[in-house]
Every structure is written in C-alpha cells, then in structure tokens.
Amino acid sequence: MNPIESQETYKQYVDKKSPNSPILKNCFNAFWVGGLICTIGQIIFNICQERQIDETSCGTIVSIILIGISAFLTGLNIFNKIGKFAGAGSLIPITGFANSIVSPAMEYKSEGYVMGVGGKMFTVAGPVLVFGISASIIVGLIYIIFNTQSITLV
C-alpha cells in the first residue's frame, strides 16, 4: 500500500504510526489523584457540617477552599506538574477549573493588568461558564414549562 496515495490512506497510515498515550497508566493516576482531591473536599465538607453550617454553604466553602489551593499551587508553578502527572485527575475536579482561570491570568500579565490579566483570564474557562450558565437557565425554563417533578426530579 502506498501511504500517500490519497489523504484518506495517509490519515489511516498516520493513525497506525503515531504512538498511543499510555492510557492505563494515565487512568490509574487520574483515578487516585481525582479521588484524593474529592476526598479532601469531603473532609472539609464534613468539618463544616460538624460546625453546624448548612449544606449549601458547606458546598460553597469546599469549592472556595479547593479553588484557593489550586490557585496557590498554580502561582507556585506546581500545578502544571501535577496536571502533567494526573491528567484528568486534576483537570476534572474544580481545581482544574481554577487552574484554567489562573494560568492565563499569569500568562498574559505581560500584556498589562487590564487587557492582559483581566481580558485574557477567561480564554480557557470562559466556555465552561457560557455553557454551564446557559444550560442552567434552560433547565430552569424547562422546569417552568413542565413544572413537574416527573421530568425534573430535583
């Protein structure tokens, strides 16, 4: 077979030639780091509950503390090393969201504090807010239209 016969054959050939990610190792690391981050959150949550704080506030406190830790580690140039090791394990928890806001803020500091830091802060995380908030409003609107627990069980 001649690999450069057509774009199709070349694509197939390249897929075969390109090395694959070590997916088992990556998944194992993602599992335990991700699990650990969630468990740290759970411990903070439990401490808050023991202090008679209501459940919603406990959740918010967990988010703020984990975001704070993540921002701190990003600022110390450590988070990217954790991310390289853990992949989705540090990306998918709220720590990854915080990292995706803090890292462009640091990166574009050289373009000034207003248009650089302020303007570029949401280059990576912006879509998360756009889609998350839009989805939540749509969920709310659907809830108004059907107004029934059978469709929205919450």
Partner: peptide, 17 residues
Amino acid sequence: EKQFRFPLELGNQRPPS
C-alpha cells in the same frame, strides 16, 4: 506555547506525538 497552544501553567498533558 503562548501563541499556539495553552498557557504554560495550565495543567494539561502533551500527547506522545
């Protein structure tokens, strides 16, 4: 990296290729 990919401090993984 800044121009073509992601901020340096973003914790992402680079594929083997």
